[in-house]
Design a protein around this nucleic acid. Structure first.
Length: 418
RNA sequence: GCGAGCAUAGCCAAGUGGCCUAAGGCGCCUGUCUGUGGCACAGGAGAUCACGGGUUCGAAUCCCGUUGCUCGCCCCA
């Protein structure tokens, strides 16, 4: 017999860990609602071209991480590789520019990338993300960042750092990159081999290299916020002052650059205090060129994505207390076949009345059924034997106090439902 | 895509070439207790020792390959 296991980089989410997910999701939807964001669910797969165009041809995601397949009709499709491009596609497809701007949306969905799995990284992971499309005002930047901050604080992760930066726009970024390049070109002998490669392809990436000598060079390198054009400068100053007004502490990190091509101006990340390679739990930024890139009129937008697996990992690490999933309070134990029938009847009536009930494994002696009640940690066990069947009663045993009383079935139902 | 470590029952694990037809613990099931849990005691089920090949009289144990997992790099959430 062949055996199967979950595909590499994927994981079963077992009942025992569901509480973390329910907890995170309910906080996410709650925060989104308070900020006025409406939920959007887009398809799990899209036209492959959407991501190629949206995320950028040279990015790792497009170059080597997308799940691309051809369907039976010959269309090239891609499992959702990222959250923002599909939302922008929907914005265009449904003419959302006719709604009040910005259009505020959030999503909670799986994302697929073909990567080497490791701590906090999977081939299928899940993101909570928001997008505010159609208004380039810096107050929207601050709003989105505040939403992220509020969300992560709300789930109980308080030892976190918000990093911000501005990487300019189509006007000023080329100049900045040129400045950066010429700075590093004078230092090539001090660069690590990786960085020498990056210099040609993606100079921004030199900034976040971890090699000691490169780090030192990065400290001295030209900073993007020093090369902003006038508009970007004003935008950046306002974002910062709005963040101050909202009381959101943040640290400007000149080395913060993001790997997706579409980012402009404001970029940000939230990091937990615990060191780890895959530590970023939230990342986002402004993408004012993306909608146009996808065939729409120039439309500003900003958003973030937050990895739920990483959030859950951090909740566990921080030993944050997370409420248990509600489970039935009652287990029904029966003795004999006649009682069994009554047990089935009672369970059914209870559930119809909105009361949770589990029928014990009837093949076992009462003793075994009681053990089961204990293992399932129910609040009370309902026992039905010959006497109870005859009298139309049920024994209600409180598992905590070990006290029990015999009550008429109807009376019990009324009490339990009320 | 690159580098490193690991792989024994559902989980944790002993075992480092021959009393291994594989210890122990958790969990599960049964009994002690004919209709009453948590404790204790007794018993039971559950393992092609990841897979394939090799070395050897003999392999869970040594070697090679494959697969998987974990960790790091790259990148990202």
């Amino acid at each position: 017999m062949p055996t199967f296991q979950a595909p590499r980089g994927t994981a079963d989410r077992l009942p025992a860990e569901q509480k973390y997910w329910r907890y995170i999701e309910s906080h996410a939807t709650g925060v989104a609602r308070r900020f006025g964001y409406g939920r959007i669910d887009s398809p799990m797969f899209e036209d492959a071209g959407l991501f190629v165009r949206g995320v950028g041809e040279g990015t790792d995601i497009v170059e080597k991480e997308m799940y691309v397949f051809e369907d039976r009709g010959g269309d090239q499709l891609t499992l959702r590789a990222e959250g923002t491009a599909p939302v922008c596609r929907a914005y265009l497809e449904h003419g959302m520019h006719n709604q009040a701007q910005p259009v505020r949306m959030y999503y909670l969905c799986p994302v697929f990338r073909y990567e080497r799995p490791q701590a906090g990284r999977f081939r299928q992971h899940h993101q909570f993300g928001v997008e505010a499309i159609g208004d380039g005002d810096p107050s929207v930047d601050a709003e989105v960042i505040e939403l992220a901050w509020t969300f992560i604080h709300g789930i109980g992760l308080s030892d976190i750092t918000l990093l911000t930066n501005s990487i300019g726009d189509a006007q000023c970024r080329p100049e900045y990159i040129a400045a950066l390049k010429s700075y590093y070109e004078g230092q090539t002998s001090n660069l690590c081999p990786d960085c020498r490669q990056r210099l040609g392809r993606n100079p921004l990436r030199l900034l976040d290299c971890k090699v000691e000598t490169c780090r030192a060079l990065g400290e001295e390198a030209p900073k993007s916020v020093e090369c902003l054009c006038a508009e970007c400068q004003i935008h950046w100053d306002r974002v910062r002052s709005y963040l101050d007004a909202a009381g959101i502490p943040n640290r400007v990190d000149h080395r913060l650059v993001r790997g997706l091509d579409y980012y402009t101006r404001t970029v940000f990340e939230i990091q937990p205090a615990v060191e780890g390679a895959q530590s970023t739990i939230c990342g986002g930024g402004r993408y004012d060129g993306l909608i146009e890139q996808l065939g729409g009129r120039p439309t500003p937008g900003i958003g973030f994505g937050s990895g739920i697996e990483r959030l859950a990992l951090n909740l566990r690490r921080a030993e944050t207390s997370v409420p248990d999933e509600p489970s039935p309070r009652y287990l029904i134990a029966t003795i004999g076949e006649d009682a069994r029938v009554e047990g089935v009847r009672l369970a059914s009536r209870m559930r119809n009345a909105g009361v949770g009930a589990i029928l014990a494994n009837g093949g076992r002696a009462l003793r075994g059924q009681m053990r089961q009640a204990n293992a399932l940690a129910v609040a009370a066990t309902l026992i039905i034997g010959e006497d109870e069947v005859r009298d139309g009663t049920v024994v209600v045993r409180d598992m905590q106090t070990s006290s029990q009383e015999t009550v008429p079935v109807d009376q019990f139902l009324q009490q339990a439902a009320g």
